[in-house]
């Protein structure tokens, strides 16, 4: 257990990373929701829209947990000095990159799925190189490091805000499904 705990980043280091993930994942969801809202307003009541929003918030919360698990998992399997020791800063940078890669995977999904396995591996290698580059940037260049630190701490407010909204969403979903 101690060995596991030592390899996992400490909570103060995880929070900025999670906040950055929240910023990207919930921010993207809000943007998409705003695009969809006008068409829903043409046909359903305000209460229904609140319900749709609530389901989405819970799903996005689950997304952020999965994304955090990927970053924590990386920190767990890589040598400590690569990611674990500087998780709050490197992890914040990686959160942005992870968001980018997931977006790319969604956009180019059909093409990626139909690539021959060798090319799929090549795409994966490029993605990993991108992760390494991001870590190097925040380690070697103070300006990038400062930016990552500022972003991780500033995004904290979103973690609280969306955390609260998600909790309300859970209540809405529970009421609708248990009543």
């Amino acid at each position: 257990m101690k060995w596991i705990r030592e390899r996992l980043p400490a909570w103060p280091g995880i929070f900025p990373v999670y906040s950055a993930l929240v910023f990207w994942a919930y921010g993207w969801y809000m943007l998409m929701f705003m695009f969809k809202l006008p068409s829903w307003m043409l046909e359903v009541t305000f209460g229904e829209i609140v319900a749709y929003f609530s389901y989405g918030l819970i799903l996005v919360f689950w997304d952020t947990v999965q994304m955090l698990a990927i970053l924590v998992g990386l920190s767990f399997v890589l040598p400590r000095s690569w990611l674990n020791d500087d998780f709050s800063v490197s992890g914040t940078a990686l959160a942005g990159l992870l968001f980018f890669w997931i977006m790319f995977a969604q956009f180019a999904f059909v093409g990626l799925v139909n690539l021959p396995p060798s090319q799929q591996i090549a795409v994966l290698v490029v993605a990993l190189l991108g992760f390494i580059l991001a870590v190097l940037l925040v380690r070697r260049f103070p300006a990038f490091r400062k930016l990552a630190v500022w972003f991780g701490s500033s995004a904290g407010i979103f973690a609280y805000l969306y955390g609260f909204l998600t909790a309300l969403g859970v209540v809405v979903v529970l009421i609708r499904n248990l009543s």
């Binding site: 990207w24 994942a25 993207w28 969801y29 998409m32 929701f33 969809k36 989405g56 799903l59 996005v60 689950w62 997304d63 999965q66 994304m67 968001f99 997931i102 977006m103 995977a105 969604q106 956009f107 999904f109 059909v110």
Partner: peptide
């Protein structure tokens, strides 16, 4: 849809 979904991980 082959393009972007509102959810990131779950949609993927």
């Amino acid at each position: 849809d082959p393009n972007f979904s509102a959810s990131l991980m779950s949609a993927l």
